[in-house]
Design a protein around this nucleic acid. Structure first.
Lengths: 134, 134
DNA sequence: TAAAACCGTGACACGGGTGTCAACGTCAAG
DNA sequence: CTTGACGTTGACACCCGTGTCACGGTTTTA
């Protein structure tokens, strides 16, 4: 615990810190997305890098990406620091571009439906106002 | 077949016309999203309304909505004519709004990742240009 | 030392939409 | 009558990330 080189933590702590469930952390590891050393007793020991990655993965998954989508970025080290600061990546971009296409399609579709929905809402907000319990 | 009142068709034809698989058409029906009369032999018989609905559902599902998301709109008759022309709906809107929230979150998240991705790409397009096989 | 809290693995289930296969009925054409 | 295309239902499988449970080992606390 008082090791200075790296802040080492076990799965419970990491889960709490990142908001990623133990289950998911194990799954991410199983999928090769994060790495954990093993203590003598078999317990996983995570370092800061794992924590950063876990958080980044969490964000991307939450945004609707799959682990396979994320993997290339990760393999290029793009997820080794908080997502807010862009690092240097290159090849991951290629697959990123691929995903981007689909992404744009999806966004476009959703936005289109959104528009229509908003249209409806605008047209009938009086009707809604009368009930307004939601 | 030469009935004039409604163009009646069977599942195969509808599937071909809408691009929705037979399997999905049955599933939609099972989920109460579309209706089919039954011929004496048990075959499903679809009318034009079913065709329109099927196409609309197809679009929305393709856009990332679930059948449960779509159901309210459908129940209000919002999907009874081609989606391009907005009809009069009201209560469906309420659940529409609910879905809309999630939708916006998702779109926002995706867009954010998109931005970062585009950033990366911009920064490293030279590297990509050198390989340019994609 | 015993209880409580943590860790390990393995297995099963879910949701949602779809593919696919089996086993069977129906209908039109040869 | 047989063949083949089409229809029916039911069941099982997939993906993907996650929850959860069982069962056992370890660490910490009382």
């Amino acid at each position: 615990m008082t090791i200075l080189e790296f802040t080492t933590m076990r799965i419970g702590e990491l889960a709490e810190r990142t908001g990623v469930s133990r289950r998911s952390l194990r799954y991410y590891e199983q999928e090769g997305m994060i790495t954990a050393r093993r203590a003598a007793n078999g317990y996983r020991e995570y370092d800061e890098l794992a924590a950063v990655r876990a958080a980044n993965i969490r964000d991307l998954v939450h945004a609707g990406l799959t682990l396979d989508d994320i993997r290339p970025s990760l393999e290029m080290g793009c997820l080794d620091e908080p997502l807010t600061e862009a690092s240097a990546c290159a090849e991951a971009i290629r697959s990123g571009l691929h995903r981007l296409e689909k992404l744009d399609h999806q966004i476009a579709s959703l936005s289109e439906y959104r528009e229509r929905l908003v249209d409806y809402i605008g047209r009938h907000q009086e009707a809604l106002a009368e009930q307004d319990d939601g």
